[in-house]
């Protein structure tokens, strides 16, 4: 049963990952990337890495890819100029690919990955709890450093895109709008009817 599920999701993962780079329409490509993330999350679930799998769906599928799609749909990317540079960037791309393959080969040869399925989780307690304990005790320092780096990235992104509005632009202040009472806007005038 587990084997069938694994091969199904692994096949979906490989096929959708291939389609991401071969399909012509950028929106379709982004959607196939979503499918690839989703099926890799399913493969992680089979390893009982529930926290990582759900975090992958939550962060990448639920947030990052939504913004990706948002931008791609808004930009209406024209594909022709993108394809022109294919031959020019091919050597660079091949170099990066070769480097990645070599890295993976080194990891596999050093015995880091064994071909059989990893042993099932034998430790008591939930995946999330163990991960949290490890992060906040043994790896506290790297964890804090990663947090600081992310904070710097957020501030930098905001600082790069922040533009001062021109003085002429008048924006309504919602607080003042909400605070308006009837007496400020309406004056009821009682008048005698004319005779």
């Amino acid at each position: 049963m587990t084997a069938i599920t694994f091969y199904f999701f692994a096949a979906v993962l490989v096929i959708s990952a291939l389609l991401v780079i071969t399909v012509r329409n950028p929106v379709h490509a982004a959607l196939f990337l979503v499918l690839a993330f989703f099926s890799s999350a399913a493969v992680w679930l089979l390893l009982q890495a529930e926290f990582l799998a759900i975090a992958l769906v939550l962060v990448y599928v639920g947030a990052v890819m939504v913004l990706f799609l948002f931008v791609i749909m808004m930009l209406d990317v024209n594909l022709a100029p993108l394809r022109e540079g294919f031959a020019r960037y091919l050597p660079l791309g091949l170099t990066v690919a070769a480097l990645l393959v070599v890295t993976m080969a080194i990891v596999i040869r050093s015995g880091g990955i064994n071909a059989t399925a990893p042993a099932q989780d034998t430790v008591a307690g939930s995946n999330t709890q163990l991960l949290g304990q490890a992060l906040f005790t043994d790896f506290l320092y790297p964890f804090e450093v990663a947090g600081a780096v992310l904070l710097v990235a957020i501030i930098a992104a905001i600082a790069l895109t922040l533009r001062r509005r021109s003085r002429q632009l008048r924006t309504p202040a919602p607080g003042l709008q909400v605070a308006v009472r009837r007496e400020d806007r309406v004056r009821i005038v009682k008048m005698d009817a004319e005779k």
Binding site: F51, L58, V61, Q129
Partner: peptide
Amino acid sequence: INAGLLYILALTSLGIY
């Protein structure tokens, strides 16, 4: 499941697709 709350959060974020 142990990560029930996370599962809910992940799935409700998928509805937007």
